[in-house]
């Protein structure tokens, strides 16, 4: 009698204690759920080889109230990683740590370390303006500037001095709009206001605006929640295309979207990162009881 077992992914790590191990112990014999609903220790390997961003023991407090508890997670190069979890689980708060958007919130303190290509982004000497160009952000509601389509894209490169001449700027605007899959739709109306575009087009305009300043990482906070299914599908295709050149971190409440667009998924619960793993594994065979409860709709 031959028994052949195929595991969807071979590096499932049970109960990695991220305080002690940087790579965890691989236990390929793990079957089914390995963590109870009471245990918030991260299940799965949160680390990758040669990460673009490295987050270690990141905690966030809002006026003394802790919102994120000691999250350690790598963001790989050329990956889409989805952050999922119920409202208030800390996923958006953690996302905003990645380009210091929390700096603007009074009473918010971030501890731990986050590096981008080895650079500590919370170092006192780091200027957040170029940081936010390198780690761009796309928000839930499309927020084009009240300017022309052209100027929406050209604004960032101008203030960052990325184009030496008008022709260079024109090329950069076209390239950004092409990468965002919007060029063919707007090339004849670049002088029209960005706000006249449809919701889906506005969101792609915002993505083009982010791309225009040559980011390394793009953060997306519910980028499709204000869009209809067709515009959503277009943005999801775009995310897949952008993965060739950027790392993308996406927060979404749509489990199907997380499953469709990402290669890894991180599940947050009450401010803790309780599970991270290959997206296929998370959605077919989650290891943490809390992940299973959430994605199968048993709470949340």
């Amino acid at each position: 009698m031959n028994t052949a077992c195929y595991t969807p992914e071979s590096t499932i790590i049970a109960g990695v204690n991220v305080h002690l191990h940087d790579t965890g112990d691989v236990n390929e014999d793990v079957k089914g759920l390995v963590s109870s609903a009471e245990d918030y220790t991260t299940v799965g390997n949160p680390f990758v080889e040669s990460p673009r961003m490295k987050c270690r023991e990141v905690s966030v407090d809002y006026s003394g109230k802790r919102a994120v508890f000691g999250v350690s997670l790598d963001i790989a190069r050329n990956e889409v990683i989805a952050m999922i979890g119920p409202s208030g689980c800390g996923k958006s708060t953690f996302l905003r740590c990645l380009n210091r958007m929390n700096d603007t919130i009074p009473g918010c303190t971030v501890s731990g370390s986050i590096t981008l290509d080895g650079m500590d982004i919370y170092d006192r000497k780091v200027d957040v303006v170029p940081l936010r160009a390198m780690v761009g952000m796309v928000f839930q509601k499309p927020n084009p500037f009240p300017k022309s389509i052209y100027d929406n894209i050209a604004y960032g490169p101008r203030i960052h001095g990325l184009a030496g001449s008008r022709s260079e700027l024109d090329a950069l605007v076209e390239d950004s709009l092409r990468k965002a899959g919007l060029w063919d739709e707007v090339k004849d109306q670049l002088d029209k206001p960005g706000t006249m575009l449809s919701g889906g087009q506005q969101q792609r305009l915002c993505i083009a605006r982010t791309i225009a300043v040559s980011p390394e990482v793009i953060l997306m906070d519910e980028p499709c929640s204000a869009l209809d299914p067709i515009a959503t599908a277009r943005v999801e295709e775009l995310i897949e295309e952008l993965r060739d050149n950027y790392s993308i971190v996406i927060v979404t409440h749509s489990m199907q979207q997380a499953a469709r667009v990402s290669q890894r998924t991180a599940y947050f619960h009450m401010g803790w990162l309780v599970e991270v793993g290959e997206t296929d594994q998370i959605f077919t065979n989650p290891r943490h009881k809390l992940t299973e409860n959430y994605i199968t709709g048993r709470f949340g």
């Binding site: 009698m1 031959n2 028994t3 052949a4 077992c5 195929y6 595991t7 969807p8 079957k31 089914g32 077919t284 065979n285």
Partner: peptide, 9 residues
């Protein structure tokens, strides 16, 4: 179903 592993005997 229980263990999430495809098994063939």
């Amino acid at each position: 179903l229980v263990e999430g592993e495809i098994t063939r005997i």
